[in-house]
């Protein structure tokens, strides 16, 4: 059972109106693997991530996480929408970090991190506080437990957001351009936390524009353009000898900057 990949994305299609955003994407993520998803803006990277934990519906194909469909159940070979409650159950095990942090502004850093463990997992407040303060210490914010998000820098907020996701002890972490909204000098502290997580064996799917991070921390690069995976390769191979014209063009544009 645990031989099966943690995440299997098979021929997923997604349309927004007439625009085909995902055009038959297939991707597999093994347990403990870090996969970086690269691609030009508007290529469908973020949409793919949002489909995985069913923040977006899909129009075709299937996404199987740890042997279960996310947001759907299969009836006579067809996918039907799953109930809110059961979808939420699967989502517990998939952490997500957003570009714009999306911390809960009415809760302190510790409140953000303990909210779901208490109200979703049913942990006691004491247990949740212990787990939460441990995680905040791990992301370097052990001294800021009682700070509200508005009192924290962008980098600190994003680290709280990572701790918040980790507090659910997810099997998979999704990073949706986690550093894109940060001032350049704050990017490093967030990437450091992500590297630490990767080194710790967390399974991660990372949509990013940080090529250095992708090269050093990822085991595999998935390059997306126009809603399909154009190229999939280990970072060393992808960056030194991209096989496809589109990947070469993408890397060339970035190097010119």
């Amino acid at each position: 059972m645990s031989e099966r990949p943690l995440l299997e994305i098979v021929d997923v299609h997604k349309r927004f109106g007439a625009v085909e955003v995902l055009n038959g994407i297939s991707l597999t993520v093994e347990r403990g693997e870090v996969v970086a998803v690269l691609g030009p803006s508007g290529s469908g990277k973020s949409t793919l991530l949002r489909c995985i934990n069913h923040l977006e519906t899909i129009d075709g194909g299937r996404i199987v996480f740890d042997g279960r469909l996310v947001g759907y159940r299969e009836v006579d070979g067809r996918l039907r929408p799953e109930s809110d409650r059961r979808t939420a159950r699967v989502r517990r095990e998939i952490g997500m970090v957003f570009q714009r942090f999306n911390l809960f502004p009415h809760l302190t850093a510790l409140g953000n991190v303990t909210e779901a463990p208490v109200h979703v997992l049913g942990l006691s407040r004491a247990e949740a506080r212990e787990r939460g303060s441990g995680l905040l210490a791990r992301v370097g914010l052990g001294e800021r437990l009682d700070a509200y998000p508005s009192e924290l820098s962008g980098g600190q907020q994003q680290r709280v957001a990572i701790a918040r996701a980790l507090a659910m002890q997810p099997k998979l972490m999704l990073f949706d351009e986690a550093t894109s909204a940060l001032d350049p000098e704050l990017v490093g502290e967030v990437l450091a936390v992500m590297r630490d997580l990767a080194a710790d064996g967390m399974t991660m799917l990372v949509v990013t524009h940080e090529l250095e991070f992708a090269r050093d921390a990822a085991r595999r690069i998935a390059f997306i353009d126009d809603g399909v995976i154009v190229e999939e390769a280990p970072p060393a191979e992808f960056f030194s000898a991209p096989r496809t014209e589109r990947a070469r063009a993408f890397l060339g544009r970035l190097h010119q900057r």
Binding site: N53, L55, F104, A116, H119, V120, M168
Partner: peptide
């Protein structure tokens, strides 16, 4: 984005409404 964050943490619709 608040609702999305709550959902991503496994919160159901009613819980998200009440707590977030």
């Amino acid at each position: 984005g608040q609702v999305e964050a709550a959902k991503s943490l496994g919160m159901t619709g009613p819980l998200t409404m009440r707590r977030i």
